[in-house]
Simulated assay, not measured.
Amino acid sequence: MARTTPHDPSPADPAPADAPPPLYRRVADQLLGELRDGTVPPGERLPGERRLAEHFGVSRETVRQALDVLRRDGLLTTDRRGSHVALPGPPAGSAAPLVFPVGARAAEPRTGDRATVVWGTPPPEHAAALGLVPGRPTLMHHYTSATAAGNGRRTAVTSFSAVALAEVEELARYRDRADGIACAQLRRAYDWMRRAGLTLHHRDTITLQPDTASVRVVRRVHDQYARPLEITDLLVDTRQDALVYEFTLPAAG
C-alpha cells in the first residue's frame, strides 16, 4: 500500500472560513483602533516601524505589512519623512485645538476658504520679526476667506521661522509641496508646535486701518526660549463681519 503524507496548504490555497486572520491584519486592526481613539491625531506622524514592532510585540516585517493594509485603505499617507494619519477630523474626546491662522472662521474649512503654501521671500517686516537674513526664503502660508455674498473678506499671510521648520516635522514636510497652487490647510499648526514640545506665546496687535472699514491683526508667536516661530498679518473687512477670538484654558491641577 502506498504511503501518503498530510497535505500542507500552500499560500495559494484558500484559508478555512473559521481560520483566524493573519497576524499583520490583526496588527492593522489594533493600530486602527488606537488611531481612532486619538493615540496619534489626524495629520501627525506615526512612530517608526521599530517602535511599532516593540509596541505590538511583532516583527518589523509584520508591521510593514500592517501599514500597507492601512495605506491601501487610505488611512495613512507616506512620504520621505514617514507615515502620517489620514483619518478625518480631530481625535475622539480631545479638546479642540487653537485654529491656525489667526482669524480663521471655523474649525473646519468651508466654501469660500482658500489656503496654500509657498517657499518664498517674506515681507521685510516678517523677515525682521523672525530673525531671517533679508532675501532668505522660508515657508509662507496664504489664507483667504469670503462669504458667498463676497463681503466679510479676510486675507492672512504667515511666515514661519527657521526654528519652527527645524522643530516641527509636520511643517517642514510642506516645503517640498509649497507650490502656491495645491490646497494646504495647516489648521493644526499650533497643535503640532505644542506636540513638538514648544510652549506658545501669542502677541496680537490689532489696529484700525485709516479711512477704511478694515482691521489689521498682526500675530507674533514665540516659544519658551523667546525664539520666534511665526508671524501672521491678517486683514479683515469689518463692514459685514466680526472678528472673534476664542480661547480654552485647561483646568488647574
Rank of each mutant, 00 (worst) to 15 (best):
R72S: 15
R50E: 14
E230N: 11
V63Q: 00
A251R: 15
S159Q: 12
L249A: 08
P42Q: 06
D73K: 12
G38Y: 02
G197P: 00
Y143Q: 11
R110Q: 14
R45Y: 04
P91G: 01
V244A: 12
V69T: 05
D237M: 06
D13F: 05
C183W: 14
P6N: 02
E108M: 04
R114Q: 08
A164M: 12
V102D: 02
A127H: 00
V63L: 00
S161K: 08
R26I: 05
W192R: 03
Y24M: 06
A115F: 05
L229V: 04
R239T: 14
R220Y: 03
R45S: 14
A251S: 09
L200A: 02
L31Q: 02
T138F: 03
R80C: 07
P21I: 12
R188V: 11
Q65A: 13
L31I: 14
E167H: 12
R154D: 07
A172Y: 11
A148S: 13
T205K: 11
P123G: 03
E167Q: 14
R187H: 15
L235H: 13
L70D: 00
P16H: 03
V215G: 01
A106S: 13
A127G: 11
L52H: 08
G180H: 06
H141N: 13
S59N: 07
S10F: 11
A107R: 15
A164R: 06
D191K: 02
G89K: 01
F56W: 06
T147N: 12
A19D: 08
A95C: 10
V40G: 09
D223I: 05
A242G: 13
P137Q: 09
T199G: 10
T207I: 08
T199K: 03
L186G: 03
L234A: 06
G103M: 00
L186M: 09
V168M: 05
A196G: 06
P11M: 02
T238E: 09
T248P: 05
V118M: 04
T158C: 10
P134K: 05
P16N: 06
D79H: 03
L235T: 15
Q65K: 13
A189M: 14
T205A: 12
P88W: 04
G38C: 00
V63H: 04
H142I: 12
T121G: 04
V215P: 00
F56E: 02
R25M: 14
V133C: 11
G180S: 09
F247E: 08
W119T: 01
T138D: 05
V69W: 02
V218I: 09
G152Q: 09
G48F: 08
P134Q: 04
T207C: 01
R81I: 06
Y143L: 11
A95F: 05
A251K: 12
T77R: 15
A156K: 03
D241K: 06
Y24P: 04
R60G: 09
V102I: 11
A115Y: 01
H142F: 15
S161D: 05
I181Y: 15
E49K: 13
P124T: 10
V118E: 09
